[in-house]
Design a protein around this nucleic acid. Sequence first.
DNA 1: AAATTAGAATGGTAAGACCATCAATATGAG
DNA 2: CTCATATTGATGGTCTTACCATTCTAATTT
Lengths: 240, 240
Amino acid sequence: MPMFKPAKQNRIFEDVVEQIQDAILSGQVKPGETLPSERELREVFKVSRGTIREALRVLEQKGLIEIKLGVGGGAIVKEASVDVLAESLDLLIRHRKVSMEHLAEFRIGVEGDIVAMAVERATPQDIEELERITKMAQSYCDKGPDYVRQFLEADMQFHLTLSRITKNPMYDAIGRIIHENILSYYKDFIERKGIKLKENCDDLARLVAAMKAKRPEEARTVLKEHITRYASIFEEKKDQ
Amino acid sequence: MPMFKPAKQNRIFEDVVEQIQDAILSGQVKPGETLPSERELREVFKVSRGTIREALRVLEQKGLIEIKLGVGGGAIVKEASVDVLAESLDLLIRHRKVSMEHLAEFRIGVEGDIVAMAVERATPQDIEELERITKMAQSYCDKGPDYVRQFLEADMQFHLTLSRITKNPMYDAIGRIIHENILSYYKDFIERKGIKLKENCDDLARLVAAMKAKRPEEARTVLKEHITRYASIFEEKKDQ
DNA sequence: AAATTAGAATGGTAAGACCATCAATATGAG
DNA sequence: CTCATATTGATGGTCTTACCATTCTAATTT
């Protein structure tokens, strides 16, 4: 059974981290509340200020607190968010040098699940939102190749909205990471290679149509084509 | 375009973090190599040792380095690992931002994709491995309720093997963090509530059979039932 | 040759000082 | 009186210096 941490008992600041983290997770201090100042914490824990600060850096990186400057500032307990999850996944992708092919494959799977789920959970307001974004994308599409970036932004918004419709924070986080990592690549050479704007734009419209008709499998298929079309640009690129 | 970080230009240590992180991610320093000592880094960056140390705490928490004591020790660049990812998910769960229902739903989607993919990519050796694990699980199952923990371990091994068969590092990573987080919860109260070992065991056998017959959709269905059975234990638990 | 000891490099902690920021308050101008 | 401005003090950010704890290396001893 893994999931134990090495019992490095040297390192006082880790003990401080643990105590403060427990206080936060157990609800003894609630989001929005401020921890005592560094100088007060120094008294409480009977350690030096440097040690306190190292502990605060760890807690900050864990996303448990954030620091505000000036009078009345200090370490404020944060609401938990998927940001840290997103950041660590991002680091993993970059550190492991995950290829675009693997990312695209992963994306097809996950976003397929997302869209199938979204079909069932979308409220009329959600559909409206998606149609609004689609219209916007359409207008950028009509304006021609100078508006590729704006189109891509709208496209990303569309997908992120789908993630949100699932009401599942896991999909919310994963959806964001996928796009953060993919979009940056796309933007680079889409301007060089061009992109078939019209087809991509039609994809969105077809997707919304499938959703309105409550046909999850059709939506999944359209999405897969959509993503594959995107990824195909990479195929061409790889040859050069 | 979102996903910018606040440009807090105060905070020198963040600049240090960024520079070292870039060096690691770009491969200028490779896993296993040691960064210069704190006292040397102090010279390089022209900052105090305390500032260097705060930067190292952040990098350590990000999972990019680990610290070794004594002569020849220092900050060693780590191999990318899913540990931080798993920890951040754990924090979200404990903060109640992600529920077991969310996780189970996510798991059904992702592992469904995994198993469908595994059907197509599994080598004869992979199938053998899965059968070996299934046999082991079966034996624990036969030994009765005292071997629930071992059965759960085997079950997890089964799923992790599936993830690996995809040969896609994204699925590998996501599969692992899901199970690392789920298993610890299950173990807790499965011993109190009991579990229908036989059905779960049969699931594995049926899954392998579907894979050998190259029927991805059947495999997907079996898997969904399997996970749903697991998750149902939580449903009961919630009422008490 | 093996065991022991000493040395040195390195991270861990402490204490004290000063600067930068920012909210609350006091002060001044209109 | 009202609004703008200046002052003040609490707080985080950084620097310096010092010493301790750990651990590898090598010299010393047995």
